[in-house]
Design a protein around this nucleic acid. Structure first.
Ligand code: TTP
Ligand code: MG
Length: 440
DNA sequence: GGGATACAACTCG
DNA sequence: TTCCACGAGTTGTATCCC
């Protein structure tokens, strides 16, 4: 039940796209996206976005970020020179502590498959290799091959917009089981080099090859060898080799696809590189933090040092120590074995439901699905969280912790039902529902 | 003051 | 024709209860 499509406001809203929405436009800091017509692509994206409920929500969030920035600037102006001075001293202490801890003795590789899901699909349908192709659905794409990227089509872009950018785009449905299979194959190879390798997702992993290197030189071989191994499938990977995980991760992206980067264990070279490296490309700095930092004039990692006092006063200790390590090119070089999972969840988006009974029927489905997943993974939970999203894309969560752990549908559903009842009372507007169960 | 608990916001792939 | 996913993790803040 979602009217409001007053077609009176006519379609020809000419190019008055509000002062560039930073949240919205094409993100080209991604492999395979250089030298394309960004203007044109952004126009198509905007033309298919402006006015939608999704867009309105994005605008709202943008406003919130701007408010945060405003507040930050006010705070900044209120600092006395004395405060700045002591903050600078404190920052220096932390920085020199980081510098003292710098350890260039390990060699870490980050390996990242190229266009992973798409590459697997191309393996099974080689005729797709020359064609623009993406994996996902009309609502959302998980990734695209490099041919499609030339059109501006990329991961996390809705399929229907991608189709506007590239009418010939072929969209292949997602096939997780296949990707899991291939992932297993690659991980077997990784374990030959480092049995304690750390798989970050289906398509990427960190390896500490320090010990392996003592036995055998594989700097160059690593890549060739991966290429050969995967050649039969036509799959390729990129790699970054460095003294720590942050640099290794940066490196694997620098020469994508089918490329690699080597950072020598040399302080000066690392500092020289990191100085001009954009903060946004560092893992952990997303769209929002980028904007917050940018409003302080911090765009490159080197800028962090210049603003160390202000950052100390404006951000949490956790954030600051992260920033400071960043600007010195330092990060962990220890690969933690991944422990127990912390949560398990299932969520679904569907066309708007406002009928109460239908809502509960949907909830029932989700509980069954969650219970099945929990059984398969052999886990139980003590906290259940219901997550909802309404037609305006507003998110809401409501959770309940209970003494006796939940293990199956019978124990989950009653709790979920309570949460949904409350949620319906709370927001008597129609909601498009999703459920998410967690366990902690 | 120090754990739980609840919830929003952010990030990643 | 369609009109922005889904699963997992972290951090920050508020609140309550020893
Ligand atoms: C970024 C992203 C990736 N994925 C999936 C699909 C990707 O193939 C897989 C790995 O992510 P990525 O490594 O980020 O992307 P990619 O491997 O497709 O392309 P490349 O590394 O060459 O730039 O994760 C999503 O489902 N949603 C996302 O938003
Ligand atoms: Mg990849």
């Amino acid at each position: 039940m979602d009217e409001s499509r007053k077609s009176g406001t006519n379609q020809l809203k000419p190019h008055n796209h509000p002062a560039q929405l930073t949240r919205m436009s094409l993100n080209d800091n991604k492999a395979g996206m250089q030298g394309l017509d960004k203007e044109k692509i952004n126009k198509i994206i905007m033309d298919n976005t402006v006015g939608s409920r999704f867009y309105k929500n994005e605008q709202k969030r943008e406003q919130q970020v701007n408010a945060r920035i405003q507040k930050m600037k006010e705070k900044l102006n209120s600092f006395t020179s004395n405060q700045i001075m002591t903050a600078k001293q404190h920052a220096e202490e932390i920085l020199s502590e980081v510098e003292n801890q710098r350890d260039l003795s390990r060699t870490i590789i980050h390996i990242d498959m190229d266009a992973f899901y798409a590459a697997v699909e191309e393996r099974d349908r080689p005729e797709l290799k020359q064609k623009p192709m993406a994996v996902g659905g009309m609502d959302m794409l998980s990734t695209s091959n490099y041919v499609a990227r030339k059109y501006g089509v990329r991961a996390a872009m809705p399929g229907f917009i991608a189709k506007k950018l590239c009418p010939n785009l072929i969209i292949v449905p997602t096939n997780f089981d296949k990707y899991r299979e291939v992932s297993k194959e690659t991980q077997e190879i990784f374990s030959e080099y480092d049995e304690n390798f750390c798989g970050m997702s289906l398509d990427e992993a960190f390896l500490d090859i320090t010990d392996h290197l003592q036995k055998r030189l594989i700097y160059d071989q690593q890549k060739k060898w991966l290429s050969i191994k995967f050649y039969k499938h036509g799959l390729f990977a990129s790699a970054g080799i460095a003294p720590n995980t942050m640099l290794a991760k940066i490196g694997s992206d620098l020469n994508k696809p089918n490329g690699q980067t080597f950072f020598a264990p040399n302080r000066d070279e690392i500092m020289k590189f990191i100085k001009d490296f954009p903060v946004r490309k560092v893992n952990g700095i997303g769209k929002v933090t980028e904007q917050l930092l940018s409003s302080l004039g911090v765009q490159k990692c080197g800028d962090i040092y210049e603003m160390r006092a202000e950052l100390m006063l404006l951000f949490s200790a956790t954030s600051c120590s992260f920033f400071f390590r960043m600007c010195l090119g330092c990060s962990s070089n220890i690969l933690e074995p991944d422990g127990e999972r912390k949560s398990i969840s299932t969520e679904r988006t569907f066309s708007t439901i406002s009928n109460r009974d239908e809502l509960f029927a949907k909830l029932d489905e989700l509980c069954h699905s969650l219970a099945a997943d929990m059984k398969k993974q052999n886990v139980q939970g003590k906290t259940l969280t219901l997550k909802t999203k309404n037609v305006d894309f507003q998110l809401h969560t409501r959770s309940k912790t209970i003494n006796v752990p939940m293990t199956n549908y019978q124990t989950i559903f009653p709790v979920a039902q309570e949460l949904l009842k409350q949620e319906i009372l709370n927001a008597n507007n129609k909601l498009s529902l999703r459920l998410m169960g967690k366990y902690q």
